[in-house]
Design a protein around this nucleic acid. Structure first.
Lengths: 170, 170
DNA sequence: CACTTTGTTCAATTTTTCTTGAATACTCAA
DNA sequence: TTGAGTATTCAAGAAAAATTGAACAAAGTG
């Protein structure tokens, strides 16, 4: 409740329209669910609401956040493919624009986040196996079986990723 | 790295076997990815490693966490169906045990978390629509179209949930 | 009922994460 | 090369989240 109106609490946010505020609100909450900083939700939200591309300074001014936050937030959003940068001839500024095509977003997220996590999990599971196979590890009875199950979860998750991608691109 | 060895840093954790430590490590990291407090990963990890049921006091003692943390963590884990409680005749204690069947976990997670979030999103999207349909909302050109797209993402996500459930239960 | 054991709640504290803003780096134009 | 405009980095401060521990509640027992 309070948080949703964050942008209205500082003077610079005052030039937001109700429609824009509502869109920001939506993405701030969505981001919250994905444990993203509020600033990231705000940035994507404003870009989404505006539709057009926008410079870093414009984002800073309209959202009333610091350049540091904006820069870091944009890096993250670019990283997952949620924001694209374009350059204009005879203009040094970067122009940032929201990617609103779901397939592109999915692709970015799956590639950037998920695959890294899954391969980390791979390593961990391998280490875990190695540890419990050592007779000195003190592995409780039946742990091997439960770790097997863990590995089967993991394999399933890996097979799920392309399936979800396909579905969402339809 | 540092975090992974948390449980070894306090005296009570010293009675953990290497195998148990590795399992805790795995679940603490997994939990981290899902933005769960470390204590939650530790609790589930120890229950998973042990295989047996365990009392709250046992968890507190072996993990070296406070009763408060253990109680709250267990509530969360029970809430998503990752931990089950059983009672024993002539024994006032609760006995907690890890649920290791993937289908049950999925069911719990999908029901508890996802469906709530998705219905929140529903409300938000409806409000958003209402706002931008008001001519005084100052909705930028084309925003209606983009919000349409948002709603189609959302519908897709809702259809995806049962699909994923089915797949993971196979 | 008083007492014991077990689990929960919540204000205070600690830890982690986010944000800020000044310093720095980069890029192009003149 | 200098200067002006732009973006990034990062240490310090602010905010949010997790953890603790003591007080409380609940549920038996004698």
């Amino acid at each position: 409740m309070v948080r949703a109106h964050h942008v209205t609490e500082n003077t610079v946010g005052a030039d937001m329209t109700p429609a824009e505020l509502e869109v920001l609100d939506f993405f701030v909450h969505l981001g919250r669910y994905l444990s993203l900083p509020r600033s990231v939700g705000e940035i994507y939200g404003l870009l989404f609401a505006t539709g057009d591309s926008m410079t870093l300074d414009e984002l800073v001014r309209r959202l009333g956040i610091s350049k540091g936050s904006a820069s870091q937030g944009l890096r993250l959003l670019r990283g997952v493919g949620a924001v694209q940068v374009s350059y204009r001839p005879r203009d040094r500024k970067d122009y940032f624009q929201a990617e609103v095509e779901l397939p592109a977003l999915i692709r970015g997220f799956m590639k950037e986040e998920l695959s890294v996590r899954l391969s980390h999990a791979d390593e961990r599971l391998q280490r875990l196996r190695d540890t419990i196979e050592d007779p000195n590890s003190g592995a409780p009875d039946g742990l091997t079986g439960r770790v097997d199950r863990l590995q089967s979860w993991h394999r399933k998750a890996k097979r799920l990723v392309p399936l979800v991608s396909t579905f969402l691109k339809m």
